[in-house]
Amino acid sequence: MSQVGSEAGQGSPMSIEQRHIVLQVQGLSKRFADKTVLEDITFDIRQGESVALIGSNGVGKSTALYCCLRLIEPENGRIQLLDQNLLGVKAKSLRMVRREVGFIFQKHNLVPRACALTNVLHGALGYQSGPRQWLHCLTKSKNRKRAYEMLERVGLNHIALQRADKLSGGQSQRVAIARALMQNPKIIMADEPVASLDPIAGEAIMQLFFSLCKSDGITLLFTSHNIEHALQYSDRVLAIAGGKITLDACSAELDAADLNQQYHYG
């Protein structure tokens, strides 16, 4: 497994504007049947940034995020992800890009009958294929140890052998985060990572998530319909409305009440 992460921008003195662009989206469009959801989405994300994608319900936040990893096939546009032209690459190269990007779903999407440790281990499947990566009891000690460390980082090492379907919503999402960390990702994309959790658990997980990404220098792109979360846990906010990016500003300069009014939530 490649050992990145350490060289990533830990306390890098470079200002964000000088850093490398890790994700560049240009003129992205997507329609479902007769309904155009995204018309012309254009934005850049630089190494080490934390960016929130906001917008009211059904505006296409999830669709945009899924397109960035080609989990949904976009209609038009250009996506440059980790120096690869994502829409032009073959299946193998697509896998090579995907394994460096963690993706957190709104619903954790763990394997329900497998234990937490095995679920975390699955994060390495992009690097190592075959039966030994399917279950924690079959894998190399090195991988097992690493998976356990990732669980430790999300504070769940004490339930490593608990089955995923016996975990609470918050615990499941932590395991999903540990699985993403197992990938040793350069970027993590998260689609409403705490929307299905209660506010207290949600707050704790956003906190954990944010601090893990900052300490590892992982670039973070997340969607949220919670303006307070979006402002608190991002350096920059992008807003989608009418299929376009209508706002691209530093979180520090934004006001929650204003945004709430502008991007009305109901």
Binding site: L71, S129, Q183
Partner: peptide, 26 residues
């Protein structure tokens, strides 16, 4: 969804089947 999540991590389809689909169908 769980096997799609593994495909999203860059796993091969066959690995995703054995790691996620077959346990669920067990």
């Amino acid at each position: 969804a769980p096997s799609e999540a593994l495909v999203a991590t860059g796993a091969k389809r066959l690995d995703a089947i054995f790691a996620a689909v077959i346990p669920a169908a067990m």
